[in-house]
Design a protein around this nucleic acid. Structure first.
Length: 466
DNA sequence: ATAGGGTTAG
């Protein structure tokens, strides 16, 4: 409209345009942001601090890091707000340490960091798991007198709980907040769950409800992960009810957490119901369904779900593929699994990593297609990793394939000589095939090398990973 | 006129 009337937009107009069209689907706004950027270039407004910082924020929101750094460098004299916007954008990006680099550039240039800068650097610190830096930042908070300020404390709590600084330090910060808000409570609950303290997190939530703090969708998502970890269907259902009552249940992220909770608490029917009732799905929703069915041994349903997802135009990512492959592997659906593995690179452009390959080796191995499994490992150049070879070795044990078993065991011994597994598995295989002399040789090698078979403890809980 | 804290999938 402005352009049609012959009126020239100013910097104010442009920065307003960039901030108005924000919200959730910022990646869809990329084209629009570029148009505004082009106008700014034409009008010579890129050096303007307001336009520049709005452009940085816009490109950060749609995930275009290159453009983000590009527009920042065009700003003439970045003020503290420009630096803060840029530092925060870095902290949210995949390369969080860039935030710290930016901070030092800012200080070298004579800029003075403030409490907004501090919060962003804390965020970067949490993502980088740097407790040492985090504690220095805590000291800095005291220095500038924001040690009991809510936003600063919230960021400090997250930092302590994500960087392994101990629950006690986080709780201390929480107790020192003059006015804790819902974010403070959520930071504690989420952090406790992440530290394996789901019971404490649940207790914290109860306490929060008792003091009358009003929960929101973010908070309920964290609470759900606590009850999922506790496999407490009853409490999970209660949270689901609260989400429905408060109208939060239309949120996709919360819906994902609810259906995940139902799977983890053993009710795939409820999970399916929630999935059906959700207003919108994303990749996470679909992946959670595939994962859930797979865990419940419903491999067919997992595959159907995967197919429906692709047909519906959703783009599966590497986690989705791992989920569907592992469902096939557990359910013994060999050819379907092979097909999906093939289309992963060919149709979806996702390069299989070691876990995908290990999954497929397991799938082929257990179906007795041992040579195909060996070919796969060699083709994928996974020699540097013994994981796939171990999987093949155990399949050889099941199918009595001594020769291939020896080759696989040899690979494991070569790559990770400290492991006792291959010696034990192989010697048992030789015993079953009555190759007694080989068995004794192997046992002898086990004794001479530094490898010792761990003593078996019949009462010791065996973890799934072994 | 531009800025802050918390969330989901193996």
């Amino acid at each position: 409209m402005l352009r049609e009337d012959g009126v020239m937009p100013t910097g104010t107009t442009l920065s307003a345009l960039l901030t108005v069209s924000g919200g959730d689907a910022a990646s869809a706004c990329r084209g629009f942001f570029r148009q505004v950027h082009a106008h700014a270039v034409r009008l010579g407004l890129c050096s303007n601090a307001f336009v520049g910082s709005a452009l940085v924020r816009a490109y950060q929101r749609c995930g275009d890091a290159d453009a983000m750094f590009g527009v920042f460098e065009e700003i003439d004299e970045p003020d503290v707000v420009c630096w803060n916007v840029m530092i925060d954008a870095c902290a949210r990006s995949r390369r969080a340490w860039r935030a710290v680099e930016m901070l030092s550039r800012m200080c070298r240039g004579g800029g003075v960091a403030d409490r907004f800068t501090l919060v962003s650097i804390l965020k970067a610190c949490s993502r980088g798991h740097d407790l040492g830096l985090g504690m220095q930042l805590h000291a800095w908070a005291w220095k500038i007198g924001s040690e009991s300020e809510t936003a600063t404390c919230n960021a400090l709590i997250t930092m302590y709980l994500k960087c392994g600084g101990g629950v006690h330090s986080a709780a201390n910060v929480f107790d020192g907040i003059s006015e804790p808000n819902i974010i403070s409570w959520t930071a504690m609950i989420a952090g406790l769950v992440q530290n394996g303290l789901a019971m404490e997190a649940a207790g914290f939530y109860k306490h929060m409800v008792r003091v009358g703090e009003k929960e929101n969708d973010f908070c309920l998502t964290s609470v759900l992960s606590a009850f999922s970890n506790l496999a407490s269907l009853e409490h999970g259902k209660m949270v689901h009810c609260r989400a429905v009552k408060s109208g939060f249940c239309f949120d996709t992220i919360l819906g994902n957490a609810i259906l995940d909770m139902y799977f983890k608490c053993g009710s795939s029917a409820d999970a399916q119901f929630v999935f059906g009732a959700m207003q919108a799905h994303d990749v996470v929703s679909w992946t959670a369904m595939v994962v859930g069915y797979g865990r419940h041994g419903e491999a067919r349903k997992a595959v159907e779900c995967f197919r429906a997802m692709v047909d519906g135009g959703f783009k599966p990512d590497s986690i989705t593929f791992l989920a569907v492959l592992s469902a096939c592997s557990r359910g013994g659906i060999v050819d379907e699994g092979l097909n999906i593995f093939r289309c992963m690179a060919e149709d979806h452009g996702i390069k299989p990593d070691r876990e995908h390959c290990a999954c497929l080796v397991h799938l082929l191995g257990h179906a007795g297609r041992l040579n195909e499994a060996e070919t796969l490992i060699r083709k994928m150049e996974l020699q540097l990793d013994s994981f796939a070879w171990e999987s093949l070795l155990s399949a050889c044990g099941i199918h009595g394939e001594v020769e291939l078993g020896k080759r696989s065991a040899g690979k494991v011994m070569e790559l990770e000589p400290w492991k006792d597994g291959p010696y034990v598995l192989l010697s048992n295989m030789c015993a079953e095939q009555c190759q007694w002399r080989e068995k004794e040789t192997l046992r002898g090698r086990l004794d001479y090398s530094n490898v010792r078979k761990d003593a078996a403890l019949s009462w010791f809980p065996v973890s799934e990973a072994n």
